[in-house]
Amino acid sequence: MPSGTAPRLVLATHNAGKLRELRELLRGQVPGLDVDRQVVDAAAVGAPDVVETGVTFAENALLKAHAVSQATGLPAIADDSGLAVAVLGGAPGIFSARWAGRHGDDAANLALLLAQLGDIGAEHRAAKFVCAAALVRPGPDPLEVLETGELRGSLLTEPRGTGGFGYDPILQPDGWQVSCAELTAQQKNAISHRGEAFRKLLPAIVRLLG
């Protein structure tokens, strides 16, 4: 692979939506960086799947970033995010992606959560998306940066919209009359928990790649 297109940053995920968000955030920020070729996901560089054994979003993000960075020799970004429902004491939390038992089954996760909250009134349906994002550089001059972001809102009683992924169809952000799945990509990136965490990481990423 020509050096001008060699990967320079790996996002520890197989989620195309997350990679797209990071690329858009970095586009035009680092002179000479071809975000579509040089900012890649774990599959593109053969990075291993990392078991999330942490008990917090921050622990899981750092765990994944360190593992992928060590495996590839590249700077790595990883995030862990989920939905925290007030009346459930912060659950599903780190178990958001496998709330119904099978990892990544969005439809089953949504159905189970809505069933659990079936008799909960609107005044008690407060919830928030939470994201922890970590940037790690390997080698003799190691780097570790951790940032967090939140998107507060309330849970709808049924899914709305076809955009986004995960719990987007049932969270209505504070100040909006639509679900996260009804926002445009630009609107979502501007207010999302992941967008906030990644934007906080941006100065460190620019310094690292610049």
Score class of each variant (00 low, 15 high):
residue 19 L to E: 02
residue 24 E to T: 12
residue 71 A to P: 15
residue 43 A to G: 15
residue 75 P to L: 00
residue 81 S to E: 00
residue 69 S to V: 03
residue 87 V to G: 01
residue 35 V to Q: 12
residue 17 G to K: 10
residue 72 T to R: 07
residue 35 V to M: 08
residue 30 V to T: 03
residue 22 L to S: 13
residue 43 A to H: 09
residue 21 E to V: 06
residue 69 S to T: 04
residue 63 L to C: 12
residue 77 I to F: 08
residue 86 A to M: 09
residue 25 L to R: 07
residue 41 D to K: 05
residue 55 V to D: 12
residue 55 V to F: 13
residue 36 D to S: 13
residue 87 V to N: 04
residue 72 T to N: 11
residue 37 R to H: 13
residue 83 L to W: 05
residue 77 I to Q: 12
residue 75 P to K: 00
residue 21 E to P: 04
residue 42 A to R: 06
residue 78 A to V: 03
residue 41 D to F: 06
residue 61 A to C: 05
residue 30 V to S: 08
residue 18 K to M: 04
residue 18 K to G: 01
residue 84 A to P: 01
residue 48 P to R: 01
residue 71 A to F: 10
residue 50 V to T: 03
residue 72 T to K: 08
residue 69 S to C: 07
residue 82 G to P: 09
residue 70 Q to I: 06
residue 37 R to S: 15
residue 79 D to M: 03
residue 52 E to V: 01
residue 46 G to N: 08
residue 44 A to C: 09
residue 19 L to R: 12
residue 40 V to G: 08
residue 34 D to E: 12
residue 22 L to F: 13
residue 20 R to H: 15
residue 38 Q to S: 06
residue 41 D to M: 06
residue 51 V to T: 14
residue 53 T to R: 14
residue 40 V to M: 05
residue 30 V to W: 15
residue 29 Q to P: 01
residue 72 T to Y: 05
residue 23 R to S: 05
